[in-house]
Design a protein around this nucleic acid. Structure first.
Lengths: 252, 252
DNA sequence: CTTTTTTGAAAGAAAATGATTGTTTTTGAT
DNA sequence: ATCAAAAACAATCATTTTCTTTCAAAAAAG
């Protein structure tokens, strides 16, 4: 990976999380500690970030506006791992749908493929996608406060205009019988269309989402592959799910 | 393959993906490493790109950015004044179109009216609009890098779905005979529709935009009211314009 | 056919990386 | 508060990768 790319990745991660541990950065970039330390030194020299013991934080800018990427406290190493795995499915020239959410946002920086077209309904995804230079298309519609996802009639209609090689979807619940679900029916509808329309559909779920149900079901387990983490406590549950759908469990 | 063809290929590849590894370039062009290196050196000399260890990236706009920010800073007070005046036109229950851009962004925070619905094609506007709690709708479409405006077929179609009481438009040029204009035809098209569809249309222009023309005309002076600043040096020009359209000049 | 330009390959120089060293900072138990 | 263990750090070195320089062959131009 090029120095430039890696440093960009560090900055983007920081913009999302405000602070990042060294281990998170090595994890996310695949580089060694030494390399990350050197990057941090260089970036600090450029005032792009501030080094702190154990990692780095954003520089204390006085007039920095609270961007649309706030409230991202739970951006864990787990999401990064899941994101990186999801990104490995993206191939040169793919057009992909990337759902709103933090899990899906984490995958953007890991996409290595070239000439990728990204379509999204998430404002946070737009920002990440642009930063990494992807051709970016946005669904129209109503901006739902909270998740900052685009929903409604316009969004649905916009979905029909595009053809997706792959769709990457976030979820709030994964359940053996109920399938994938999320609280808001309007958001669920967008996800449902994405799963239906895409050639391949992947649902990203950190371990907190397993064995849970939410109000609105948007797909059955068999409709989309599940990308999640292979934690020791969830081993048994994943085993059970694997009889119902394709599971891609990322090991820490 | 001819030298300029190969260099064109390098530049177009870079334009797509921001950074390119040497191996990608040799693969794409079929030329040897040495040849690509020579091309990169030459293109860097022309400021067409920036060489980085392992490949090349688009030239860092650091050189032009100081100018941009400097310019932006110097017009901030003026933009705020113009924005505040524009915001005074917004009434309770209005549905308004707010164009992408910094001038229009400045008006959001000054809107006092209640139950206002904001429709926009600018990513920066979304952020501001959400922050101040307005019901926010977004046009879909392609995200143009640079202005971060949504353009293209989807954006145009989305415009047709809404009815606007008022439209607030940014511009790059105000000219007595050519009217209002902006560099990008696609952006101009959106502005044009906004002016046509809205019950009332306002164009916001700081004083640097007066007596200038840009490539794409989107409206005649008589089609939209002009909100600008009444500077001492522009007094005469504004007097001249006031015979052609409605001028609302804000005094500092 | 000769001269100039472009190209690709090779060798040494420079840069980046990862591992290892010893030092500094933090942590937490007394 | 003090000390020892643990964690994080900077400095250094060997290895790998990339870069520049150089040169000769191939292609293009005169």
């Amino acid at each position: 990976m090029l120095t430039f790319e890696r440093q960009d990745m560090i900055l983007s991660l920081l913009k999302q999380q405000k602070v990042a541990k060294l281990s998170e950065l090595t994890e996310a970039t695949g580089a060694s500690e030494s390399t990350i330390r050197r990057d941090l030194s260089e970036l600090e020299r450029q005032n792009k970030l501030k080094r702190i013991h154990g990692g780095a934080s954003l520089p204390s800018r006085k007039s920095e506006e609270p961007g649309m990427t706030e409230k991202k406290a739970s951006f864990t190493a787990e999401k990064q791992l899941i994101g990186r795995h999801a990104a490995s499915h993206v191939e040169d020239g793919d057009s992909i749908f990337v759902d709103a959410g933090t899990s899906t946002e984490a995958m953007i920086s890991h996409i290595q493929a070239k000439n990728v077209i990204i379509v999204t309904n998430g404002l946070n995804i737009i920002e990440a996608s642009l930063r990494f230079g992807f051709r970016t298309y946005v669904l129209g519609g109503y901006v739902k406060s909270g998740t900052h996802a685009l929903i409604g009639k316009s969004a649905v209609e916009a979905m029909r205009q595009y053809r997706f090689d792959k769709a990457f979807i976030g979820t709030n619940g994964v359940d053996a019988s109920f399938g994938y679900s999320t609280p808001d029916p309007e958001e669920a509808y967008i996800k449902q269309i994405a799963v239906q329309e895409a050639q391949e559909a992947y649902v990203l779920a950190d371990s907190s989402k397993l064995n849970r149900t939410s109000f609105s079901r948007f797909a059955g387990l068999q409709d989309a592959a599940l990308i999640t983490e292979a934690g020791s406590d969830s081993e048994e549950y994943l085993q059970q799910l694997s009889e119902l759908t394709s599971i891609e469990a990322v090991k820490i």
